[in-house]
């Protein structure tokens, strides 16, 4: 297999909520090792798009391939088509509101997926979880409950939980939007390290500086379509369209 096959490839992807057309035909290839920044005004469809990429939302139409295999809306694989369960084992997601499991200790939050879905033995799952906690700087919180963590700590645990599945792709949906400003940095630092290590990522973000910094490519979405795409330099420093200029000006002040 060549290095050039995209991890995720979508063509003409659409998503409707009732009569509301949220995505109006998205074409997108995500290459291994790529860090893709998705920006755009609220309601532009960027969150819906990223949620389609692990079938958290089922697309209404279009083609969706993961490592060249068609994705089906069934939980299990169907023939050569990859099911949602299998897809999500390989495409992790981190949410805006963390969504940690409040009844489980930090360590158990991280080992839950490996143990129940991947059927890893407890010792193996815990050893890796402790390793991941060290990577996000929270090795001392292994036995704490999520309620006793700060927002930034919760989000770092959530990232570790997603990484515990050893995903090929990580989707980050506005992961710093619910954080107090002083806690954003610690989460971004973790993501930056992932990017440096070659993790394939898609991030929906309002942190333009951060997107410029770590993204290998930035997509500007508006009204359900990809309005502009290019390097961070192109998109954020030399925006072509009036709309993108208008959108960015609100962040530069």
């Amino acid at each position: 297999m060549t290095q050039t096959q995209p991890a995720i490839s979508v063509r003409g992807l659409t998503k409707n909520f009732g009569t509301l057309e949220v995505l109006k035909g998205i074409d997108l290839d995500l290459m291994p090792g790529e860090v893709l920044g998705l920006i755009g005004p609220s309601g532009s469809g960027k969150s819906t798009l990223i949620r389609c990429l692990n079938m958290m939302e089922t697309p209404s139409g279009g083609q969706f391939l993961f490592n060249g295999r068609e994705v089906t809306a069934k939980f299990r694989d169907v023939g050569n088509k990859i099911g949602m369960g299998n897809l999500r084992r390989n495409v992790g997601m981190v949410f805006q509101h963390f969504n940690l499991f409040p009844h489980l200790r930090v360590l158990d939050n991280i080992t839950e997926g490996p143990r129940t879905v991947l059927k890893q033995p407890r010792a193996e799952a815990e050893a890796y979880a402790i390793d991941l906690l060290a990577q996000v700087g929270l090795e001392d919180k292994a036995s704490a409950y999520p309620a006793h963590l700060s927002g930034g700590q919760k989000q770092r645990v959530a990232i570790a939980r997603a990484l515990a599945m050893k995903p090929e792709v990580l989707l980050l949906d506005e992961v710093t939007s619910a954080l107090d400003p002083e806690l954003v940095g610690e989460v971004l630092a973790v993501i930056r390290r992932l990017a440096d290590r070659g993790m394939t990522m898609v991030l929906v973000t309002h942190e333009m500086g951060f997107a410029a910094d770590i993204a290998s490519r930035v997509i500007f979405m508006e009204q359900g379509v990809i309005a502009e795409t290019g390097s961070p330099e192109d998109i954020l420093r030399n925006p072509k369209s009036e709309r993108l200029r208008g959108f960015l000006s609100r962040f530069h002040g």
């Binding site: 299998n86 969504n99 940690l100 499991f101 839950e112 879905v117 939980r161 997603a162 515990a164 599945m165």
Partner: peptide, 24 residues
């Protein structure tokens, strides 16, 4: 969000119900 987080780590609906939703 609990159901989504469970789904995001590859859990089936039944597994998520048993391990994540019902205990809470």
């Amino acid at each position: 969000g609990q159901r989504e987080a469970a789904a995001a780590i590859g859990m089936s609906g039944a597994l998520a119900m048993r391990r994540i939703i019902l205990p809470q």
